[in-house]
Amino acid sequence: MGFVDSEVSGGTHADQDALSVKIVVAGGFGVGKTTFVGAVSEIEPLRTEALMTEASTSVDDLSMLPEKRTTTVAMDFGRITLADDLVLYLFGTPGQNRFWFMWDDITRGAIGAVVLVDTRRLADCFGAIDYVEQRGIPFLVALNAFDGVQEHDAEDVRDALQVGPEVPFVVTDARERESVKTVLVTLVEHAMSLIQQA
């Protein structure tokens, strides 16, 4: 940690540590989360796994993990260095019910969440929306433009998802860097406006 540094690292000060922040990219399997992350990440999206047992197991029990390890949940993530001292991570996370145990970890301290939606499989995003709504995590809904989704579809989807008028709805192409950038900027601005209103 920063404040113990001067001794352990020979004069490196806390203010030289970069700040890292994160945005969560949520949605069902195949909706385009990894594609979205990869479109803006400066590294090939990396994959990390958490063990299903981690949530219910104290760290003391780690030595028992080999027997207990039954299911792993993978998340793909990317990194964007925004400045010398500012790094943004994007975590793509499956929004399935059996994965909620990971979500507290992934969303804690997040700027907000991009909920990616495939309009052909709308129900896949219900869980993610419920989760972020209940916890007051700033979010927007991004319709991934499979099969030529149009801007005007956004309002129909808003009705179907029953989210409030303050939640931004955008159409995106997760393969396009500029499109993904726009979605991220929109989310950050939304998070800012929520703070300004509070």
């Binding site: 700040l19 922040v21 994160k22 803006v40 964007i80 925004l82 400045a83 500012l86 943004l88 301290g109 997040a110 700027i111 907000g112 860097r177 950038k181 991220l184 900027v185 950050v188 601005e189 998070a191 800012m192 703070i195 300004q196």
Partner: peptide
């Protein structure tokens, strides 16, 4: 926390725009 700090968010927004 940084995610609720306006000046941090401004820097993130501006950094993303510059990409």
């Amino acid at each position: 926390e940084p995610a609720r700090n306006l000046s941090v968010l401004e820097r993130v927004r501006d950094g993303l725009r510059r990409l």
